Simulated scan of single mutants.
Amino acid sequence: MVETVTLYRAPTTPADADAIADWLRDRVDAEVQVRDRLLGSVDGADALAEALAAARVTDPYDRGTGNTMVGVVRYEERALSAPERAGGVVYDGRAVQHALNARLPGRRGLDHLHVPLVDRVLGTWGDHDGRWHKRVAVLGQPSLISVPGLYEAPAKPEAYYEEKSKHAMLTGDAPPREVLEADVEGDFLVADDPRTTDALKGYVLAATDFVETGTAFCGDEDCRLHDAHRQPGVVRAQLRAPEFCDRHAERYG
């Protein structure tokens, strides 16, 4: 039984941890508290920097990860102290989860769930197709919620990729992201989207639900506990009515 949920801020992102916590308090029978950025407050920052370097995905089709050369570790150290300098890297979400679990403050049992909002892109390996997949959430202890993953992990509408391909054929270059986002019709989330906070609420609740029930996400595409694999599905599940399927409305509605 989850008695306490600690949510950690990601100050370099538009995600409002306090607003998410207020929403969560109305839906779970647990104390919900908010702390500052976990990646900026853990003990053993040098060891964490090396762990992050080792968790880097270096090839989307290679299960192996990591580059712990001195320069890479130094980059991770700088990114821990100045997160606005981080970006462009995908990390093995399970490896990051394992590294952070050993450094969690306070109680580490499942009665106290830690949910860091992180400013890193996380992925998990797919045994079914032999490649890495970006994720919004990596559930467990701690449950990691990737803010950039909200924009990058779920696939965008087909028109987005069609326009991207057409532009590349005409110019030989990939079009700037801003051009595609302006030209393509369809509802999808973009970097620094003002809907970020609302869209993340369901993922944070799903983290709590997973620890309580052992079930990862919901199969109903209209439920906020659904893990949509396409951007229109994220908008449908997180930003459109109804808020929950019947089963989860009874539990959280």
Rank of each mutant, 00 (worst) to 15 (best):
E3P: 04
R25D: 08
V32P: 01
R35P: 02
P14Y: 09
D18N: 07
V34I: 05
V5M: 14
D16E: 12
I20M: 09
A30W: 03
T4K: 15
T13N: 08
R25C: 10
T4Q: 15
P11T: 04
I20P: 03
Y8A: 00
A15M: 05
L7H: 01
Q33V: 14
A10P: 10
V34P: 03
R35T: 02
D16N: 15
E31I: 07
L7Y: 06
R35S: 06
A30R: 00
T13S: 14
A30P: 02
L7F: 11
A10I: 08
P11W: 05
Y8R: 03
D22P: 06
P14V: 09
V34D: 01
P14G: 08
T4W: 15
D26K: 12
A10Q: 05
V34S: 05
V32S: 01
V5D: 04
L7E: 04
T12G: 09
R9N: 11
D29C: 11
A17H: 11
R9C: 12
R9V: 06
V34E: 01
D22F: 11
A10N: 02
V28G: 03
L24S: 00
T6A: 07
R27L: 14
R9D: 08
A17P: 10
L24Q: 00
V5S: 04
Y8N: 01
Q33K: 11
Y8S: 05
A17Y: 13
D22H: 11
A15K: 02
A17N: 12
L7M: 14
E3V: 09
A30Q: 00
L7R: 00
R9I: 04
A17G: 12
R25A: 13
A21R: 01
V5L: 15
I20V: 12
T6H: 03
V32H: 02
A19T: 14
T6V: 13
Q33Y: 07
D29F: 13
V28E: 03
L7C: 06
T6R: 06
